[in-house]
Design a protein around this nucleic acid. Structure first.
Lengths: 233, 233
DNA sequence: AACGGTAATATGTAGCTACATATTTTGTCA
DNA sequence: TGACAAAATATGTAGCTACATATTACCGTT
């Protein structure tokens, strides 16, 4: 791109990355000041700043005011995950999407849900259990709790046609998100719903969202065997 | 922060986010041009640009030249994952870290590894199997393949004291990363190594790295039951 | 030597301008 | 009507300046 005479901030970033790759700057080493790099490369400090920000965002370097920039002594593996709406995920794989509501009812939130939201005490919430299908076969079972105080509209929604997943993602943007991944063995009910052998290992994607400390929803998405979650970046 | 008279790009971002939250702009809607928003809020276009970039990065809006900015019609749940070095992960939990090499030998790469790297044919690679311990108990078992063409130094490393995980993360920065998560049932060997019941559900974190299309390493990190992977953002 | 205040310094941010780039829209000609 | 070229337009990027902010370094006092 901008391959002219001017250096783009991506060029600068890649050049510094290159220096880290080749060992010119090793873990813990301090890099020159932005201004010096700018002069050396013949670009503006703002360009170096953008490049450094990006390297910092991707976890390769650490920056501190007055302290300068240094290569992370203990790098982290950092990646961005995109989790689409389940319907879209199925459709993009070329399969036909299906949806089936299993149960919808108010119930007092159990301990796990109260803890996920960081609430003090239990309270009644809407529990929605549903099955996402891919070409007619079970794909993901979701066990969801919705806080009716934050989303009063759910009292008028039956979730028989549109999934809570879809409705919430479209209508309830969040300000805070908590994700966790773990594995569980299929208990009799799960193996029945997902049509798997009892005891099969299943990946669970647990998601909890808030708007400014007000809990929206928490959901366990229990996937079928063989399901893999991939990074896009 | 910059709470003075001047608006920071974070303020602008939050203000626009607020408008999306309250439904002033719904999914698919087009937002005003940056310049108009800048004028309305009394700040520079560059400030709005930064705010919009951030909203775009977090998957809330989509921007296209000439096309303008619009709220994503089908939002994605986007999150950033940080996976630290295993030693550090254990130490940060307050436990004592231990490491044990199980096996280290050259072997022809099996199909799965060849596929993960996107190679045409199999070739000999270094396989390193090792156990990470937390307070003396198994924590993560890693089954790793290293490409000796890309990292010839590994021929002189025995990985009995320092884990391949640590050495690679410190000495082999990558330019491309592939992450995948899934669940497996513990087979007899795994349940023996990890001291779990046979058939236990285990979360697997699979990581593959490259430097400019040259494969570095691919590793299956098989965690013990109860292990959870969390987002930091 | 310990403490505390002040200066020095590197990054962070806001604003401005100018131009680049991608895309849509418009207009013209066959 | 269709195809293609040209104009219009919104975002993207680079450079500059000025100032804010965090943190380290220094120095004087006790």
């Amino acid at each position: 791109m901008t391959s002219d005479s001017r250096l783009s901030w991506r060029d600068v970033r890649d050049r510094i990355h290159e220096h880290i790759l080749t060992g010119r700057y090793g873990p813990g080493d301090r890099l020159p000041r932005d201004a010096d790099i700018a002069e050396e490369l013949g670009c503006a400090r703002s360009t170096v700043q953008r490049a450094m920000q990006d390297l910092s965002d991707s976890g390769l370097v650490e920056r501190r005011r007055k302290g300068g920039t240094r290569v992370r002594a203990e790098p982290v593996t950092r990646a961005t995950l995109d989790i689409p709406i389940t319907r879209r995920e199925v459709e993009q794989s070329g399969a036909r999407y299906g949806y089936q509501l299993i149960r919808r009812r108010m119930a007092p939130a159990p301990r796990g849900v109260v803890a996920a939201f960081g609430l003090g005490a239990s309270r009644p919430m809407l529990r929605v259990e549903a099955l996402h299908l891919s070409d007619g076969r079970p794909y993901i079972f979701e066990d969801r709790w919705i806080c009716p105080e934050t989303s009063p509209e759910v009292n008028d929604l039956d979730f028989t046609e549109e999934s809570a997943n879809e409705w919430l993602v479209l209508n309830k943007p969040y300000t805070r998100l908590d994700l966790r991944f773990y594995a569980v063995s299929a208990n009799p009910r799960l193996s029945d719903l997902l049509e798997t052998e009892p005891g099969a290992a299943l990946l669970v994607i647990e998601r909890t969202t808030w708007v400014d400390d007000a809990p929206i929803t928490t959901v366990k998405a229990i996937t079928t065997p063989g399901y893999q979650l991939l990074t896009g970046s």
